[in-house]
Nucleic acid binder design. Structure first.
Lengths: 122, 122
DNA sequence: GACGTACGATTACATTTGTAGTCATACGGG
DNA sequence: CCCGTATGACTACAAATGTAATCGTACGTC
């Protein structure tokens, strides 16, 4: 279980996390904005995601409706920990420091993070 | 430039960011703790990193000394932004929220992040 | 000066990924 | 009832990746 989801596959997952279930054509339509894949490509990605148990299908007539079989929160949690482990020895603060230094933190971002931390300290 | 560095290659880079220059044998030795690659495998990774311009070499007699050709900070910055863009729409706070929820934030981590933010607000 | 040996270079090969094309077929329209 | 068409399944194929073996050769040792 929990096979790795590739970048291209991830884009498909995002569509379905945003709205599901959808059939292949619909998924393709929704991806058209960001990707220039053919329908065939999208279908390949869908099959691979199904074999990886990342998507579940439900027959609707002679087509399938696809829906996520894993929660976005679970996926994001897994990826985040992998990432922070790999680059920052598992600690979040160096990542924040990194963002701070590259000035990618807006005042709102800062405020939001502070609010989160306040919450945690209670 | 800036070709993507794979996971295995990244492990090699870490060794050299920690201490450089080193020859292949030394890098292999230092990786032995964490990876069970053969020397041949390490050499392949080294060559690939050299073709990707991620490492530079310096001849020492008939062997090479390898050293990073890119800064760890630059690499980490790039990877961090890619990651946060992909999963959190470029905003850091949701990532912090994610860590907060999965209770992966130690009190020290929280303190460090707060200190960082204080610094930024000045 | 021959010989093993330590090196980088070259080659190998399975798997994953990105990107699609082709095939069989069931369904809906006339 | 036949035909085009939409759809999932299967096939294709190059590039990247993980993992390693082999090859040619310069070097140091006897």
């Amino acid at each position: 279980m929990a096979e790795r989801i590739s970048d291209a596959e991830h884009a498909v997952m995002e569509v379905l996390w945003d709205h599901a279930p959808l059939d292949a054509q619909n998924i393709y339509d929704r991806l058209s904005g960001s990707q220039s894949w053919t329908l065939a490509t999208v279908k390949t990605l869908l099959s691979r995601l199904v074999s990886k148990d990342a998507l579940a299908t439900e027959a609707q007539g002679r087509k399938f409706l696809y829906r996520p079989a894993i929660e976005r929160t679970a996926y994001v949690a897994g990826e985040s920990h992998r990432f922070v482990d790999r680059l920052f020895g598992g600690k979040l603060s160096p990542l924040v420091a990194q963002f701070a230094e590259s000035e990618k933190l807006s005042p709102e971002d800062i405020a939001e993070i502070e609010a989160l931390l306040q919450e945690l300290k209670k």
